[in-house]
């Protein structure tokens, strides 16, 4: 495959995306180099989750224009599993329940594929009890357990690029702290991490190198963490004024 860019990591170029007949993303540009931690913020309905799902390769999200590159190669037309194998991992906003699929079984298969850490170490890392291994994935999990579990399976994938869709929504503060530690671990492993956050809770525990503000399907501003203070004071519209 031709390398279309020299960026090591994720590059989103002029991305236009439709869901059904509705155009949601209208020309998104974003660069996430490996080893960096970025935040994507913006009001409800701006298209943040659409960006995450499109990058992950969800079939309902149709790219009408633009491209998504991973380490300089286009992944736009690849199946979701191919994207994952190339090093992309997405933490779901609402990870679904997998009835009948045990946590231990899933991790065994992930380990076969990626050769990552042992389940007990991963569970310790995210602060989940060992006996969760025998439960069905996400079935009866609390909000915090779901996100901690999803973080553990992402670390097991040894990814290069991680997109986290609202890892801090619907969870307790202890979980938010754990997730922040998990992000640090991923950064230590050399991954680039983009956190989509509406609440910005997580950013109290880990400071992003870059903050991107999305409004109405476009990234309207990118800058350092000081953007967060402006948003805090003036709201999202304040950053473009």
């Amino acid at each position: 495959m031709n390398r279309m860019s020299d960026v090591e990591g994720l590059e989103v170029i002029d991305l236009w995306v439709k869901v059904g007949d509705k155009l949601i993303l209208k020309g998104v540009n974003l660069k996430l180099p490996k080893g960096e931690f970025h935040a994507l913020v913006g009001p409800n309905g701006a298209g943040k989750s659409t960006l995450a799902m499109t990058i992950a390769g969800h079939p309902a999200y149709k790219v009408v224009r633009g491209d998504i590159l991973l380490d300089g190669e286009s992944i736009k037309d690849l199946d979701p599993e191919e994207r994952a194998k190339r090093g992309l991992a997405v933490l779901f906003q609402h990870p679904p329940e997998l009835e009948g699929v045990r946590v231990a079984e899933l991790f065994e298969k992930l380990r076969e594929m990626y050769g990552g850490e042992k389940l007990e170490d991963l569970l310790k890392l995210v602060g989940l009890p060992g006996d969760i291994a025998f439960r069905y994935v996400n079935v009866g999990f609390s909000g915090g357990e779901r996100k901690r579990f999803d973080l553990a399976r992402i670390i097991a994938m040894k990814p290069k690029i991680v997109i986290m869709d609202e890892p801090d929504s619907g969870v307790d503060m202890e979980s938010v702290k754990r997730i922040a530690e998990g992000i640090k671990k991923l950064l230590d492993m050399g991954a680039g991490v983009l956190v989509i956050t509406h609440y910005r809770n997580i950013l109290k525990y880990i400071t992003p190198k870059m903050v991107h503000v999305m409004i109405d399907g476009r990234i309207v501003k990118s800058g350092g963490p000081e953007l967060l203070e402006i948003i805090e004071a003036k709201g999202f519209s304040g950053v473009v004024a």
């Binding site: 992950a56 390769g57 969800h58 079939p59 199946d79 979701p80 599993e81 994207r83 994952a84 194998k85 991992a89 997405v90 779901f92 990870p95 679904p96 329940e97 997998l98 009948g100 699929v101 079984e105 899933l106 298969k109 992930l110 594929m113 990626y114 399976r153 994938m157």
Partner: peptide, 19 residues
Amino acid sequence: QLFYLRSMGFAEHEAVQML
């Protein structure tokens, strides 16, 4: 559920089998 598993790197037939 299928997409969730595929996004972890499992081929569609593997995801179908697991579910």
